[in-house]
Design a protein around this nucleic acid. Structure first.
Lengths: 351, 351
DNA sequence: CCTGTTGATCGTAGCGCTATGATAGTGAAA
DNA sequence: TTTCACTATCATAGCGCTACGATCAACAGG
C-alpha cells in the first residue's frame, strides 16, 4: 500500500446524516426499487396496481415528502414558475398573480414571486436569479425590458410569457391587451358624450410604460377627431387616491373649461371623484370621469365609475394555459403565442 | 453489429449534455479548483484578492449563473422562503408580502407564494409542498392551523414564522398584533364619542378567524362598559365595498337607533360610507364609522375615515428580520420570538 | 532545524432524485 | 421450438453544487 503519508485510509466522512425519509426508504418498505417508486410518483399508470398499492402504503406510513430540489436537479428543470411584476400592491397584478398561482398550483407548480418596482435593472437582477432556479417558465410584466434581460432569457431556452401588454415584439409568448387602444376607447367614449376639453390623469408614467401608452392612445384619439383639446398630466409618485385629488386640481388649473377626465387607474379616478365632491363640481354634469381597472369600489362609489375592465383574471388564466400547454408537450407556434384578452368599457354614472 | 449479448461494452451513456455553464467551467478558466469558486461565491473574503479577481473575470466572461437547485440540494437547505397567505388580493397581505419579498431578496432569498383561501386543508397542502423545497423558512398567516400542519412543520425543523396575529401559542415565532385588542380599541373610541348603539360589520368571519376576533374584542368591550348595545353582523362573502353597503343596510334594520359602526376592513367601511351618503345619513352626526386597515383611500374619502392601522409593512420587516437572524446564526429564544407590532387608531372625520 | 500555526486552496463524497438503457417475464406469431 | 413485441421492473450514472477534511505554503517561536 502507500507508505509515507500513511493516512490515506479513507474514512468515509459522512455528512450530516439527515434522517429525512427518502425515496429509498419508501422503496425498501414497499419491496421495490427506487426507480419504481419514482416512476409511480411521476406516472402511476405505468406501474402494476399491486406495486402501486404497496408504494402508496409505504409513502403514507413513512410520511414521505418528495424532495423537489433533488428532483429539479436531476430533471434539469424544476417545478417552479417565476413571476415578476412591478408591484404586488397593485390590485391589477395581485389579481393576476392570485389566479395564476391557483391555476399553476393545481398542476403541482410553485410560484416564485419578484417585484421589479418598475425598474429595468431590478427586473434584470430578478430574471437572473429566476433562471438560477431552472424554472419551468418565466412570466414577466409588459414588453419593455433591458437588452440584457432579453438576451438572458433567450439564451436560457426557458419558456417566457410577457403579460399585461401586447402590440410589440414579445420574447416568446404574450398575453394581454393593447394599451393605446384602451386609451382610445376612453377618448371615444368621452367624445361621444359631447365632451371637448379633456385631460388624462396618470401616475408614474415616466416608469410605467403601459400607463404612458394609454395616455398616448387617449391623446391621439382625442386629437384625431379634430375638435377637442387634450392635456396629459402626470404625477411622479404612485397611483393613489391622494394623487387623484392632486391631479384633478392641476387639471382644473391647466385646462380651461375642463369637462372630462380619464384616469390611468381607478384609484386616481376615485380621488378625482372625491375632489370634485369637495369642490362642488357635479359629476358627470360638469365633469365626466372615466377610470381604468374596474376595481372593487368602482361599481359602488358615488357616482358609480365608468371604467375599462382589463380582466386580470383572464390574463392569469391564459398565461397558465400557455405555460401548461408548453409543459405538456404541445408547443403552439405562430399567432397562438400572442393572446389578446381585450378590454371592456363599463359605462356607469360618472360619464 | 451487436451479435447476441456481446454488447456488454459499457457505453458511458451521457445524458442530455447540457451546455450550461457550470462552476467547473469557471474554475477551469480562472485556473482554480471548483471549491475555490464555490467558496468565493459564498464568502468572497475567504479567498485571496488575486484569485477572487480571476474568478470574477471568469464569471463575467462566461456569463455564469449559479444553479441554486444544485446548491440547495448539496446544502440541504435551499435559499427560498415559502410564504402562505389567505389571499394576495387582500391589500393587507399584499403589503406585507411586498415588503417581505424586498427585504429577503436583498439577502439573496427567493419567495415562494401560496394562497390558502382561508382553508386549513389548502394550507396543509401548501405547507406540504413548501417543505418539499427544503426552505430556509416558512411564513404562515395567523395562529390557526390544522393539527397536521403543526405536526409537519414541527417535525421538519424548518424555522416557522406566523404573522398578523399574536396572543396564542405559535409553532415557532410570531409577528403581529392582538385582534381582540384592535376590536376593543375601536369600541372604546366609539364609546368615548358618546355612541351607545353599536354594530360590528364583518365579512367571511366563519373562515377569517382574525376578523372574528376583532368582532369579539369589540363586542366584549362594548358590553363590559354596561350601557351600550352591540350587534355583530357577518357577510358570508369576501370583504368588499359592495358588502359594506349590504351590511350597513342590515345593521340599520337590526339595530334600532344605530349610531356607530365598526368594520372589519376599510373596504367595508367605504361601502358603508357610500351607503350612508346614498341614504342621506350624515356621517358622523347620525352614524359614526370606523374601519380597519388604513387603506389607500381612507385618508382621502368623504368624510375621511377613522381607522386602525395595523402596519403590514412593519410586520413584513420584522418577519424578515427574524428569518435573517435565524439564518445568520443568532437564534433568539424566549419572548423575543414573539413580536407585537401593535396597532394605531387614526382618528379622522368619520367618527 | 523542527514544530506548530495560520490562511489559502484543493479533492471528492455525497445531497435525493430522474433518465436512460438493460433485463427479466409473458404471450403471440412464425 | 424459436423469435419477436411488449410490459414491468431494475441498476446506475449523473444533475451541479457544498461541506468536509486534507494539503500545502509561509512563517514564527523554540
Amino acid at each position: 500500500m502507500d507508505v509515507g503519508s500513511s493516512l490515506q485510509n479513507r474514512v468515509p466522512r459522512k455528512r450530516r446524516k439527515m434522517q429525512r425519509v427518502t425515496m429509498m426508504d419508501v422503496a425498501k418498505l414497499a419491496q421495490v426499487s427506487p426507480s419504481t417508486v419514482s416512476l409511480y410518483l411521476r406516472k402511476p399508470a405505468a406501474v402494476s396496481p399491486a406495486a402501486g398499492q404497496e408504494i402508496a402504503r409505504a409513502i403514507s406510513t413513512l410520511g414521505y415528502v418528495p424532495n423537489l430540489v433533488a428532483g429539479g436537479l436531476a430533471a434539469a428543470s424544476s417545478k417552479v414558475v417565476s413571476i415578476i411584476v412591478p408591484s404586488i400592491r397593485n390590485a391589477f397584478f395581485a389579481e393576476t398573480v392570485s389566479t395564476l398561482q391557483s391555476e399553476l398550483a393545481a398542476e403541482g407548480l410553485q410560484v416564485i414571486l419578484g417585484h421589479s418596482e418598475y425598474g429595468e435593472e431590478q427586473e434584470e437582477a430578478l430574471v437572473r436569479t429566476a433562471l438560477a432556479w431552472a424554472p419551468a417558465a418565466v412570466v414577466l410584466t409588459g414588453l419593455s425590458h433591458s437588452a440584457e434581460t432579453r438576451k438572458l432569457l433567450q439564451a436560457s431556452g426557458v419558456p417566457v410569457v410577457e403579460m399585461w401588454e401586447i402590440g410589440g415584439n414579445p420574447i416568446d409568448m404574450a398575453v394581454g391587451f393593447s394599451h393605446p387602444q384602451v386609451g382610445a376607447s376612453a377618448a371615444r367614449h368621452l367624445l361621444s358624450k359631447g365632451r371637448r376639453s379633456l385631460a388624462f390623469l396618470g401616475a408614474r408614467m415616466q416608469e410605467d410604460h403601459r400607463a404612458a401608452k394609454r395616455a398616448n392612445g387617449f391623446a391621439e384619439e382625442a386629437k384625431r377627431t379634430g375638435h377637442a383639446t387634450c392635456e396629459v398630466i402626470n404625477h411622479p409618485g404612485a397611483a393613489t387616491v391622494e394623487a387623484g385629488s392632486l391631479l384633478l386640481n392641476r387639471a382644473l388649473q391647466q385646462v380651461p373649461n375642463l369637462d372630462a377626465i380619464a384616469c390611468s387607474n381607478d384609484l386616481i379616478a376615485l380621488g378625482a371623484l372625491f375632489e370634485c365632491q369637495r369642490q362642488g363640481l357635479a359629476v358627470p354634469d360638469k365633469i365626466a370621469v372615466a377610470g381604468f381597472g374596474d376595481l372593487d369600489f368602482s361599481a359602488s362609489c358615488i357616482p358609480s365609475l365608468t371604467t375599462i375592465r382589463p380582466s386580470g383574471d383572464l390574463i392569469g388564466k391564459e398565461v397558465a394555459r400557455l405555460i401548461l400547454a408548453g409543459i405538456h408537450g404541445a408547443q403552439p407556434t405562430g399567432p397562438s403565442r400572442i393572446i389578446d384578452t381585450g378590454h371592456v368599457l363599463v359605462e356607469r354614472r360618472s360619464t
